[in-house]
């Protein structure tokens, strides 16, 4: 369980990233955070694995305040929290396998990882993860030879190899076309249901949020302005969150073609 207790974050340049956030996210939930760019969505999910550090309040994961963690505890926390990025963040010159196995880094000793000495279990796990997102045939290709959608699937496989309890996805489909976006979201959703991994996704497309989320959190100017199950959400809710009329650009269009 993830609990935000009055969490605030002020960046060194004085920008208020988060303002008194109070939310609770239950195990296995698929939460979509929506809001315009700059609303604090990214700051919110990056607080959960402390890529950014909130300046006030308490952030509890399984009843431990992670804001008090030192670097050792932090690395341990991060092995349990997988993250997916807008730009996939693969090492482009490395092979798919090397990228996916890097999900095990937190569980592997430094020396062993430098010499690629991974136990057979880890190699099998990496392969299995690639199979789950249907990209095992690209195993030894260089990552930069793959399309955007394929790279994002490799990134999902990397996270699965981590065997996390929580997956954070920061605008995972913002760089993809509509059909590929649906494909990636479908995989995220599948993984969430099969492994019961708590999944928190930032999106700014309202139709996608509606299609895949269990629950929607709306943010504006660093504050949570909406929080409720997807069944209660309609277009008016989004207009309230965005503070303006819904436009065409807020929808990704297309539909799941899988």
């Amino acid at each position: 369980m993830i609990e935000f207790k009055d969490v605030s974050l002020v960046y060194p340049n004085g920008t208020q990233g988060l303002k008194n956030i109070n939310i609770q996210i239950n195990p296995g939930e698929f939460v979509v955070v929506v809001g315009l760019s700059g609303a604090g969505k990214s700051t919110l999910i990056r607080s959960i694995n402390r890529l950014v550090k909130p300046t006030g309040g308490e952030l509890l994961i399984d009843n431990e305040n992670i804001l008090k963690y030192g670097s050792r505890d932090l690395r341990k926390l991060r092995t349990k929290v997988g993250m997916i990025f807008q730009n996939y963040n693969l090492v482009k010159r490395s092979s798919v396998m090397k990228n996916v196995i890097s999900g095990r880094l937190g569980h592997t000793g430094t020396l062993k990882s430098l010499f690629n000495l991974y136990p057979k279990e880890d190699q099998a796990l990496a392969y299995r993860s690639l199979q789950r997102v249907n990209i095992a045939d690209k195993l030894y290709q260089r990552s930069d030879q793959l399309s955007g959608g394929q790279q994002q699937r490799v990134a999902i496989a990397r996270v699965l190899t981590q065997q996390p309890n929580i997956i954070l996805a920061d605008e995972p489909v913002a760089s993809l076309d509509p059909p590929t976006s649906h494909q990636v979201m479908t995989y995220l959703r599948k993984v969430n249901k099969e492994d019961n991994i708590t999944t928190i996704v930032n999106l700014h497309f309202i139709d996608m949020a509606m299609e895949y989320a269990d629950r929607i959190i709306g943010m504006r100017a660093g504050e949570v302005v909406y929080d409720g199950p997807v069944s209660d959400v309609n277009e008016a809710t989004f207009e309230e969150i965005y503070g303006r009329k819904i436009r065409d650009e807020d929808r990704v269009g297309g539909s799941d073609d899988e």
Binding site: M97, K120, Q123, A124, Y127, L130, L139, Y140
Partner: peptide
């Protein structure tokens, strides 16, 4: 199967 090793790279 929990233990499928990845196929060896063809070179």
């Amino acid at each position: 199967t929990e233990f499928t090793l990845p196929p060896k790279q063809k070179k």
